[in-house]
């Protein structure tokens, strides 16, 4: 029989709360909830890759037998349309149906709920209240501040924190064992370093490394990271800051980022902002940094209001070059 390999983030997603790595206090509370088979609406907030979705799925697994899951659980993540119409129709219609099978309520999981418009969130308020008896919401978000306060007040809020080095290494080691990989301590450290507490990225990096060799050393990890991290953003900025800047080369790099990484204009502005703040003082004079940031804020606004990202970023790069040149 063939065994088809899957994404490890999915294949090794914990099925039960016991398996979940880290977040010990939260997991303990959730276990109590699922044992009593009763819990309030919940809001999971925290950075990416720390187990929010996994916990929600684990609760579902613990509460419902397999054959009841599809009819009693509705998942909507950000790749689905979640405009106000979906809230008023799909979510409401699902929320008011009597639960099937042995359970006394249904669960709606809204992943990346902070990306819903506030209109859509307001429309959800009443649904959460009225069908409280038979439907529970689990909202998942990165920033709870972007969830309107009436909804926050209806939820028990759980703040997930980034995973620490031991927790991430523990899970990586577990996967490596199951996949019969050789991995040394140094490589594990490197995987943790680059993941910044995001287990999902660490597992992805592990799988990418394992696609090269089953004997994973720190060099392999670096090779993957060198390929994966968009170094183009930094490179584009450095192209502008050099003594002999090259405008064409800089904008070519931006174009590559948009094309092959699929980054949108606003994504790019976000990356540029982060890199601008990270470039060391030796490479960029303070005054240039601040001038560039204020320009970037203008570019960000223009793109957000519908201007063409390519033309606006061209202007940004050109201006940065001439400011840096004047400094010399």
């Amino acid at each position: 029989m063939v065994k088809i390999e899957r994404m490890w983030t999915e294949a090794f997603r914990p099925k039960t709360l016991d398996e979940v790595v880290g977040q010990t206090e939260i997991v303990e509370r959730l276990k109590q909830f699922s044992k009593r088979v009763d819990f309030p609406h919940m809001l999971f907030s925290g950075p990416a890759g720390v187990g929010k979705t996994t916990c929600a799925e684990a609760i579902v697994n613990e509460i419902y037998p397999p054959n009841e899951r599809s009819s009693n659980v509705k998942r909507l993540n950000a790749s689905d349309d979640r405009g106000i119409n979906v809230v008023r129709q799909d979510i409401k219609n699902f929320a008011r149906i009597i639960p099937s099978g042995s359970s006394s309520y249904k669960i709606i999981i809204l992943d990346e709920a902070d990306q819903m418009t506030s209109d859509a969130q307001h429309a959800m308020r009443q649904t959460m209240e009225r069908y409280n008896e038979i439907t529970r919401f689990i909202l998942i978000c990165n920033y709870s501040s972007r969830i309107i306060s009436p909804i926050q007040s209806r939820c028990a809020i759980f703040r997930f924190s980034g995973l620490n080095i031991d927790e991430i290494k523990l899970r990586l080691q577990y996967i490596a064992e199951r996949k019969q990989l050789q991995i040394d301590e140094e490589a594990l450290d490197a995987l943790y370093e680059s993941s910044e507490g995001d287990l999902r990225q660490a597992i992805n990096a592990l799988q990418a490394s394992a696609s090269l060799t089953s004997d994973i050393t720190v060099d392999v990890v670096y090779q993957v990271q060198g390929y994966v991290k968009p170094t183009e953003v930094r490179a584009a900025l450095m192209e502008c800051l050099e003594p002999r800047p090259d405008f064409s080369a800089a904008r070519k790099r931006i174009q590559v980022l948009m094309e092959s990484y699929g980054l949108s204009g606003q994504d790019l502005v976000k990356h540029l902002n982060r890199e601008l703040n990270r470039i060391s003082d030796g490479d960029i004079p303070e005054s240039v940094r601040f001038a560039a940031l204020s320009m970037l804020s203008e570019v960000d606004y223009r793109i957000a209001t519908g201007s063409n990202p390519q033309i606006q970023l061209d202007a940004f790069l050109a201006k940065m070059i001439s400011i840096a040149q004047k400094q010399r």
Partner: peptide, 23 residues
């Protein structure tokens, strides 16, 4: 990719596509 890995397309671009490209 996002549908399978339960993330938005935005997150898929940032967290999955680079690794997939490598693989």
């Amino acid at each position: 990719v996002g549908r399978v890995c339960q993330v938005s397309s935005q997150s898929a671009i940032n967290f999955f596509l680079p690794y997939l490209r490598f693989i």
